[in-house]
Amino acid sequence: MADKLIVSSSPHFRSGITTRKIMLDVIAALFPSVIAAVILFGPQALFLIAVSVFTCVASEYISRRIMKRENTIGDLSAVVTGILLAFNVPVGINPFALAFGGVAAIVVVKQMFGGIGQNFVNPALTARIILMSSFPSQMSTWAVPFYYLHQTDAMTTASPLNILKTGADGTMPTLLNMFVGVRAGCLGETCSVALILGGVYLVLRKVISPVIPVCYVGTAALISLIAGRNVAFDVLAGGLLLGAIFMATDYATSPITFRGKIVYAVGAGIITMLIRIYGALPEGVSFSIILMNIMVPHIERLTRPRAFGKERAKQ
């Protein structure tokens, strides 16, 4: 006789997908870019990624302990934040400065607002902005790719967007070089092909919908075209692809409604190009995503789908 049975409310089946599996997919999607970063910027790139990941995971573990909440490092979201933060700094950054950024991302932006899913801005991007304000010169000194293969120490150059904006010294890379990543920039943002590869993987694995990256990059490209700029350059330069594929698609800080995703991505594209064209800064991806992050609750409220069987609102 079976009488010691579990009684629970339906459904009794689940798909088996977990937060951890999703984060593992994101880490796998970031892997080509990690390889690219190490090839372009040397072993120091790998060291910085390790420092960032370690700091983020340790910050999450310690802050959860102090708050007496259950340990969540097993969901691997702190690992993703760590990799993304390292992708957003130049190779010449002081590792301690990077670690400071990791603590800020996890403790201040994520855990103080309740942990995974509760932060209202992207932790890695906010930490990048904190680092840009705290260490402005370190955050805007760019090493020449493959510098580590040369004997000379200080091989720095201006980033392509900086050359465009301020006419700073430096040679503009070819579009092909920008596509494969041979240009000045943050660790993970330069190799477009690796980023696109990761993005395609995430779409195929259904971890992200292509709506946000496509609308974001598409809007930026359209504005670039209208403004008479070099469209391919604008798409490949700066952190647009890294931002559109890996940062703007962050679950916690992007809309959950379909139409909301479109509004959000188009908005980010517009702000990015406004900053690039008119702003004092050469690059605007971080700020545009953060600004749109803040608008997400309003976007979601205004883009709620019509429930099945509900009459269309009278116009």
Binding site: S8, R14, I116, Y251, P255, P305, A307, F308
Partner: peptide, 24 residues
């Protein structure tokens, strides 16, 4: 029979895109 304990919502939106009644 065993189902994992719930963890925090990560706002992935799968419940929204999967809802046949288009609810949130």
């Amino acid at each position: 029979a065993r189902l994992d304990e719930p963890t925090a919502c990560i706002r992935c939106g799968r419940c929204v895109s999967g809802c046949p009644m288009q609810l949130i």
